[in-house]
């Protein structure tokens, strides 16, 4: 299934938005974290600044998010992991609420309780978790519910190649196949789990091959390309909607930034990220759109400025919104 011009443009715009979001975050995140404003002797202070805590950014991994989410509807479920922004944006998670959440503000998606690894937007059925491998079984549950409710909704579990070594992942694959659940497992192979290279963590080359062990199709997308992901995901989603069961998709993608912001990245060659950026999927899709006559400089500039304004407004919103009252920490342990 090939994308229409409309779908191509949608993917392009979303990728531009994700990149702008992540690059802005990379800057905002550093505010207040560097000497001389922090404890003497420190090079960096993770707990300081307007956006404290860990920060995992997805610049470079945009094709995975948009290629899959292009096929999803509002009622379809997405379960992300600790690096969630690209999926959230591609699933139309409320950008203002998500950004406020990362600033720890009262009007954030989780009223400041969750933070960047724990975003919940039930309106578009999005959630994520900081526990590696935890998402896949939960996506099975969403798919099971769709089946029980007689809907043609699907569920997508996004996770890294590192997560594919967790028991939970393997249990989920078996469950999904056994129960013919409408779930799509999408593995982002960015070659690293923090500092550990895939070759040092995974016994086989391709996680897609693991699908065979669970009796489901395994599809390898071996380029970091939105259209290639779109094609693979289109078949998997259609198959799931038809009630024919799960698919495992593996995408070879690229992580441009550190595992988290502040990562010294001593475990990879100095110029690796720079080389990866030579194959920027946004540039590639932009060129395809231009070749089809769907994009020119003026249109590109116009859409980029609209997107930039939206992203920057989200950051201003997050920055300027009020904090919750300290005692609000006591609320929401249980549902009312």
């Amino acid at each position: 299934m090939d994308p229409t011009s409309e779908q191509l443009l949608w993917m392009y715009e979303k990728m531009v938005e994700i990149r702008e979001y992540e690059e802005t975050m990379a800057k905002v995140y550093l505010e207040g974290k560097l000497p001389p404003k922090i404890q003497k002797g420190l090079a960096f202070d993770i707990g300081a600044g307007p956006v404290p805590g860990e920060m995992h950014l997805a610049a470079g991994q945009e094709p995975v998010a948009v290629g899959v989410c292009a096929h999803l509807r509002r009622e379809d479920t997405v379960v992300g992991a600790h690096r969630p922004h690209h999926f959230a944006i591609a699933k139309d998670v409320d950008l203002l609420g998500m950004t406020s959440e990362m600033f720890g503000k009262a009007n954030g998606l989780g009223k400041g309780k969750g933070g960047h690894m724990h975003l919940f937007d039930p309106a578009v059925k999005f959630s994520c978790s900081g526990i590696v491998g935890a998402g896949a079984p939960q996506a099975c549950g969403a798919a099971l519910a769709a089946k029980k409710l007689g809907k043609d909704w699907v569920a997508v579990s996004f996770f890294g190649e590192g997560a594919a070594n967790q028991g939970a992942f393997h249990e989920a694959l078996n469950l999904a196949s056994l129960w013919k659940l409408p779930v799509i497992f999408v593995c982002e192979d960015n070659k690293y789990g923090i500092s550990v290279e895939k070759s040092a963590s995974t016994a086989i080359e391709s996680n897609a091959d693991r699908a065979a062990g669970y009796g489901m199709p395994g599809v390898l997308v071996d380029t970091n390309d939105a259209v290639a992901v779109f094609r693979a995901a289109g078949e998997a989603v259609a198959r799931a909607r038809r009630g024919e069961g799960p698919t495992l998709i593996e995408v070879k993608t690229d992580r441009y930034l550190g595992h988290f912001q502040g990562d010294p990245e001593t475990y990879r060659p100095k110029n690796e990220a720079q080389q990866l950026r030579q194959h920027d999927p946004i540039v590639i899709l932009g060129a395809q759109l231009r070749a089809r006559g769907e994009l020119d400089d003026a249109k590109d500039a116009a859409l980029r400025s609209t997107i930039s304004a939206r992203v920057q407004a989200a950051y201003e919103h997050g920055r300027n919104s009020p904090y919750p009252a300290p005692e609000d920490a006591l609320l929401h342990v249980f549902a009312d």
């Binding site: 959440e101 720890g104 503000k105 309780k113 919750p324 300290p326 920490a329």
Partner: peptide, 10 residues
């Protein structure tokens, strides 16, 4: 008896 919240004041 609450999970550890993210936001600094919390």
């Amino acid at each position: 008896d609450v999970p550890i919240p993210f936001s600094r004041p919390l």
